[in-house]
Design a protein around this nucleic acid. Structure first.
Lengths: 342, 342
DNA sequence: ATGAAAGCGCTAACAT
DNA sequence: ATGTTAGCGCTTTCAT
């Protein structure tokens, strides 16, 4: 690989001149500039980013830690991040925390060592002190999807409580009185908020909160599958269920399918987070859609702004969710949304 | 951030000693080692990877370029890569090429400048010369999913032709004689191979190859949607269709759904690449499953081996696909696979 | 068993 | 308008 020295020699100039031509950081006569550019082309020179990073003690790399890249929610978020970063000529270091604090810690340490300019992440802990040390180190961090209690940094989240409330209110409106909840672990902020929304909706509808209908599992497909089976095995199962994420919903549908139960007659269902295949299911799925791409893009934008102006006041952007009513929640076919989401 | 100098000062040793303690690269007396380790802990020292990379002119970063992170195929591949890399203490720089050569070029250049130790990528071009310059630069590259014609480096792919052949043979076995193909662009190797498999199966079944039943679009959901509509608008539509990837299949199902057509009676369907929701669809979907996680993990393993032994002969691993027969291809319910894949 | 010092490739302050 | 050079934080050769 050609270095700046090679280019300088080839063009018979100093390395400073080459650097300034490359970065446009000072005036260079046309003649010299052309000579340098020719040398760069001839040698196929590309500035070594590692050296540049070391020298300027800053990189053009952003670390991204997501909970589970295999959950379609996150690729879409990542895609939003990537598009914004790419336009700003940043690159993206990716890690999966697996909803796991230890793994998240490992990645955070790695990202710091890699000298990333900033970090966008889905916090695995609700405890801010977990990140305090990191925040002190001065690396800007943007929390997405959820923010630890008392998080002082930038954040982009969605209206989880409102989204859940809308969903459950809709079920109540359909006449359901025993409504189940399949949720993730309460330590995770989004799960907590969605559960609160569920409870608020019940209260608003003058319905009792029945503990046996509220289940917390992991946010995975198997969790949804097993938990729906638990609900169905109750002496008096719910007639409708709100499920707090997409993969758990898939597992739950699987459980219904195996027992030959039909939505919405045997069980009405609303899931959280829309998915491309909601429309192609046995019964099209009512969901609370999240603006996933915007979530990522907004987070990236906040981060880039902070990089430009470090002392900006921190901002917490809360995006809206949208209840997409389809057949699984028990509405006449006529009003069903069958549009293709792409 | 504490540097090696700070640690050396705190422990009253030279920076060389600190370096050797950190890396275990030479014998250090117990006493000194402990002193250094204490200093490291006290200062919360973490070696600066950027400096380390510059000095050793090699990084512990692997670049990964995938076609489309929003296609569930790729997150699973990425996950396989990540797990192997993480165990070896490498990190992962990610980019989406969008099936787009220009964007791929951009990322390749960036990755080279970032000094990645190696690259795992889904080639957007079938033309090896596109990558020759890069290969010469000595950065090990592993092609996944598809390899350019004459690709000399490491590669991990699947038996696309065989997979397609199995699928179409199965449809023929169900009595179908007009079988459509919805495929990606032929310039993409996987599309070409799957198309060949389709044709081979027809030939083996003594069936004619009917051009109007063969359609090439992009590998996206909208492409599948529009193309299925085209097939359905034919004077004599096919009775079965083989669709060469997962997202196009979803689009095609969408098209059927809108016209109130039922699988497999009105149209039998087999998709390529299994998806978690295949089972929860209106009619469970028969698919040609690819070992996505293994694809990624194998690629990462090949790359790490090459990093260790650069002159290893290059290897092309071809993984098997598996036809998962479910209801959409027109088999009795009794034999349908309803297992949960997680 | 440990230390001193060169140098990776670049940027930028300080020359001229 | 261009050149010289220090130094970013580390690894590693050469000394002792």
């Amino acid at each position: 690989m050609a270095t700046i020295k090679d280019v300088a020699a080839q063009a018979s100039v100093s390395i400073a001149t080459v650097s300034h031509v490359v970065n446009g950081t000072r005036f260079i006569s046309d003649e010299v500039r052309e000579r340098v550019q020719r040398a760069i082309a001839e040698l196929d020179y590309q500035p070594n980013r590692v050296a540049r990073n070391l020298r300027s003690s800053s990189t053009r790399t952003i670390g991204v830690i997501v909970s589970d890249i295999q959950n379609p929610f996150f690729p879409s978020v990542v895609r939003g991040i990537e598009d914004v970063l790419q336009a700003a000529e940043y690159t993206l270091l990716l890690g999966n925390s697996d909803w796991n604090l230890a793994r998240e810690r490992l990645y955070l340490a790695t990202l710091r060592a890699e000298g990333v300019a900033g970090i966008i992440f889905t916090p695995s802990s609700e405890d801010v002190t977990e990140y305090q040390q990191f925040l002190k180190s001065g690396i800007p961090m943007v929390a997405i999807d959820r923010a630890p209690v008392g998080w002082g940094g930038d954040a982009v989240t969605v209206m989880n409580m409102k989204g859940a409330q809308d969903a459950v209110a809709h079920l109540i409106g359909q006449g359901h009185r025993r409504i189940g909840l399949i949720n993730g672990p309460l330590q995770i902020g989004t799960a907590y908020e969605r559960q609160t929304g569920y409870e608020q909706a019940l209260i608003a509808g003058s319905l009792p909160i029945i503990p046996e209908l509220i289940r917390n599992t992991d946010f995975r497909q198997t969790g949804g599958y097993e938990t729906m089976n638990e609900l169905l095995n109750l002496a008096e199962p719910p007639t409708a269920t709100f499920i707090a994420n997409n993969l758990m919903t898939l597992g739950a549908i699987q459980a219904l399918y195996e027992r030959n139960l039909h939505m919405p007659a045997d069980m009405a269902l609303i899931g959280f987070d829309d998915v491309p295949w909601a429309i192609a299911l046995q019964v099209p799925l009512t969901t609370v859609a999240q603006p996933t791409y915007a979530l990522g893009a907004t987070a990236a934008r906040l981060l880039l702004e902070r990089l430009r102006e470090p002392k900006l006041q921190s901002r917490h952007v809360v995006l809206e969710t949208q209840l997409l009513v389809r057949a699984s929640s028990g509405v006449e076919q006529a009003t069903v949304d069958t549009s293709v989401k792409t």
